[in-house]
Design a protein around this nucleic acid. Sequence first.
DNA 1: TTGACCGACTAAAACGTTTTAGCATAGCCG
DNA 2: CGGCTATGCTAAAACGTTTTAGTCGGTCAA
Lengths: 334, 334
Amino acid sequence: MKSLSIKDIAVKANVSITTVSFIINGKAKEKSISEAVIEKVEKIIEESGYKPNQIARSLRTGNSNIIGLIIEDISNSFFSRIARLIEDKAYKRGYKIIYSSTENNVDKAKELINMFKSRKVDAYIISPIKGIEEDIQMLLDDGNPVILFDRNLSDINTSYVGADHFNASHQSIQSFIDQGKKNIALVTTDINVEQIIERCDGYKKALEDNGIKYDDNLVLKIHFNQEERETIAQIQELFENKKIDAVLFATNYLAISGLKALKQINKKVGDDLGVIAYDDHEAFELHTPRISAVQQPLEEIAETIIKLILNQLSSKGKSPVEEVIIPARLVIRD
Amino acid sequence: MKSLSIKDIAVKANVSITTVSFIINGKAKEKSISEAVIEKVEKIIEESGYKPNQIARSLRTGNSNIIGLIIEDISNSFFSRIARLIEDKAYKRGYKIIYSSTENNVDKAKELINMFKSRKVDAYIISPIKGIEEDIQMLLDDGNPVILFDRNLSDINTSYVGADHFNASHQSIQSFIDQGKKNIALVTTDINVEQIIERCDGYKKALEDNGIKYDDNLVLKIHFNQEERETIAQIQELFENKKIDAVLFATNYLAISGLKALKQINKKVGDDLGVIAYDDHEAFELHTPRISAVQQPLEEIAETIIKLILNQLSSKGKSPVEEVIIPARLVIRD
DNA sequence: TTGACCGACTAAAACGTTTTAGCATAGCCG
DNA sequence: CGGCTATGCTAAAACGTTTTAGTCGGTCAA
């Protein structure tokens, strides 16, 4: 069963395709189509359930009303929540989101960009990784709106929205120190992205500010794509061999693995062992004792991203590059 | 900067558009294009970084290589994990996923279907809700491949993939009874979807099979879109007013709210109060004590969905309708 | 020498829109 | 009455592909 085209409607209404198109696009008044014709055509459209073919429309107009969202991993709750918020807000403005996960793989990320490019998405929202600077620069050169979020790429001059990772991390460590902790570990990942680096820098700076010597042995860098089992083993090794009275996990999934690790070796979180996780997670509120976490203001981040994107989309010319750094909130629990 | 078109390539290579198209689509041999020309054109394509415009391609061929995925809520870990798996598998076969969340809203679901329809997606994967039967039937009538998952719609005759909710639920309750529990509560949602109904039916049947009378007062139906605060209050009320020694939560987010509720009123999960959650969640493994859960085989579900979709896409004719029910696994913890 | 066939390629239609440019007719002013 | 403007509409080009139905020369068998 072929679906209806604008032509079918035109024939049924006994008017030209042009007229139908004007009516569909709300230009009827402007183009001085008579009230009678407008009504007739609208009735026919209504009755027949005709929907314009977006593909043809996109081909003609050059825009797709689709925004491409490229993230690390949709199954990570930070990203899935952001995705949901962005989707929701975009949807309300008539845009659809088409997303994909890079899994921190440069090749996949490049492929995704190409895929989106050939699909002519109207704008790109990217949580980038090192190694795709060139591809992003090409998008910018072609005049596409691009917003980076969560992590910045210093070489790229485009708008960015993210939390203040440095200060959040600094503040977390400071809170440990204020509680009298001295041997503070950091469990982080080995992926080389700005937001992770800032978290490390905040850690170092806080130690330094308090006259505590930075000890490389207390920092564990976990390889990104490895099995959780291995991660757990490495964390256990760290805690068994070092004297540690507090730990900052640089991502929520590391914190989850870490808590599992501690549980298995029967190390209790509490007064003797402080834990803060970067990025909140439902599990933390529920854990006994409850785990403190750095909360990124997801709603605000999503809202800002959409705002910037829409600005760029409406002002055809170059919009100013904006970097929005949003404070994150350390939620101390128990 | 306009992006390149096939015409630019043709001009550069001094051949016709047709020839370039054949080469791009791997039909060069078949159409007897000479080796020399193939090489020349491929070189130019390579150098110029030309990518075919998928929109024009879709318009012409009528298919988009996009599969539409309609789910309840991408920020729910069950769905985000499934989405990730589906995306991954589809991607490997050259398909992209475009997804959207219905939030259990019939109007939004209908709109999404229309949106996907006008975008000419090649196939639909839908976790449906009551009230969109007609729309789905229209898709089927138009000859679109449609796979339902997670929940079935009895009125609709199309392929379905889901877990065996009835038995998983039955088994969960049976395990409570085997431990000597008598007053078993069920916390579920009020959305009227088959998979939830099956979970309730499993609950009832298990009680009946063991000669325990079904008590309506032990079943709490939570309104879907309400604030978590309210949910927690209702659950607390249930536990404060009834004698309950075990509870099955029909979804993972209800279990999370439930555990928070119990924690607040200082009711300890353990020997005196058994808890099982439907759908696993990282928080359960981490909880003290660890929470038992029904695990749906996500990997298998995703794989089956993709397999069915690809079958339908390749066999242009009507493929047989298949209902695949996959056993779920009750993981008893602690 | 002819006709059939083959190899190597191409012209042009078609997909379903949007949009530019223009065509009647009518009314109005001077 | 001639020229203008407004009203109400439409023809046709264009967007970038794929694909059908060729064309054009050459080779080979009869």
